[in-house]
Simulated assay, not measured.
Amino acid sequence: MSTYVSKEISAELDAARIASLKKTSRLRVELGDNTYKILRLWKDGFTVEAATTPRLRGLVDIYDGARHLYQCLIIADECEAGEMRYEFKRSTAASDKAPLDFYRSPDAPIALLGNKD
């Protein structure tokens, strides 16, 4: 039995797999005003579709729908099976509030009420 798959069939299988990943993924990467769909995301990087996405480089933002997840410095790694792989040089989790420069006790009061005099 032969395990050889022709280039045409392999390309069609890759296209179907990428279409399936694009349909189920909510993740996207933003570079300037442009957004591109992320196919897969892991701790050290992510992949995008190689055919429709230009080579990305530098500082990008990663979103899950409208929620800002990370701000990352990326470098291109390799192109394989229709996906372009990028690795993080730096990945910083995004926060919706400013970081505290002091320790806040879990049982601290939320606000102070003044006298009504």
Rank of each mutant, 00 (worst) to 15 (best):
L73P: 06
I62M: 09
E78L: 10
K7A: 13
G45A: 01
T52E: 03
A51F: 11
V29G: 02
A51C: 07
Y70C: 03
A16K: 11
K43C: 09
L13H: 13
K37R: 08
E8W: 14
A108C: 04
R67W: 14
A93H: 11
R17Q: 01
D117R: 08
P106R: 07
F46I: 03
F102V: 08
A15M: 05
G32H: 02
I18P: 07
L21I: 03
D14S: 04
A81P: 10
E49Y: 10
K22M: 06
T3L: 09
G58P: 06
N115Q: 15
K22Y: 08
A16Q: 12
Y103R: 00
L41G: 05
G45E: 05
P109E: 15
A93W: 07
K23Y: 08
A98M: 10
R26G: 05
R17G: 01
P109M: 15
R67F: 14
G114R: 08
R90Y: 10
E49D: 11
R57T: 05
D64E: 02
K23I: 09
L21R: 02
L100Q: 04
I75Q: 15
L112N: 05
C79R: 13
A51G: 06
R90S: 12
G114N: 12
A66G: 02
K43G: 06
S91E: 11
E30I: 08
K97V: 15
D77V: 15
T52S: 07
